[in-house]
Computed example of a mutant assay.
Amino acid sequence: MSEKTSISAKRQRADQKGREAEAQAAQYLMLQGFEIVGERRKTKLGEIDLIARKTGLVVFAEVKWRARKADLATAIDEYRLARVAAAVEAVAHEYAGPDDDIRIDVILLSPGSRPDHIENAWMP
Rank of each mutant, 00 (worst) to 15 (best):
M1F: 06
S2K: 03
E3M: 12
S6F: 10
I7L: 14
S8G: 04
A9G: 03
A9I: 15
A9C: 05
Q12W: 02
K17Q: 13
K17C: 01
R19W: 05
E22Y: 04
A23R: 11
A23E: 15
Q24N: 07
A26E: 00
Q27Y: 09
L29N: 01
L29R: 09
L29V: 07
L31W: 03
Q32C: 11
Q32P: 01
G33S: 10
G33K: 12
F34C: 03
F34H: 07
E35H: 14
E35G: 06
E35S: 15
E35T: 15
I36L: 06
V37Q: 02
G38T: 06
G38M: 12
R40D: 15
T43S: 04
T43V: 01
T43D: 02
K44C: 00
K44W: 08
G46F: 03
I48R: 09
D49V: 10
L50C: 01
L50S: 00
I51S: 09
A52V: 12
R53Q: 15
K54L: 14
K54Q: 15
G56A: 08
V58H: 01
V58T: 13
V59K: 04
V59A: 07
F60R: 07
F60L: 06
E62I: 02
E62S: 14
E62Q: 14
W65V: 02
W65A: 01
K69E: 10
A70S: 14
D71R: 02
L72Q: 07
L72P: 13
L72V: 07
A73F: 04
A73E: 15
R80I: 14
L81K: 06
L81S: 01
V84M: 08
V84D: 08
A87M: 12
A87P: 12
V88S: 03
V88R: 00
V88N: 02
E89K: 13
A90I: 00
V91Q: 03
V91K: 08
V91W: 06
A92K: 15
A92W: 02
E94Q: 12
E94C: 03
A96T: 08
G97H: 10
G97M: 06
P98R: 06
D99G: 00
D99N: 04
D99P: 00
D100M: 02
D100F: 08
D100T: 05
I102L: 06
V106D: 03
V106H: 02
S110M: 09
S110N: 09
P111I: 11
S113I: 05
R114K: 14
R114Q: 14
H117R: 14
I118S: 03
I118M: 08
E119M: 11
N120V: 11
W122L: 11
M123Q: 08
M123G: 02
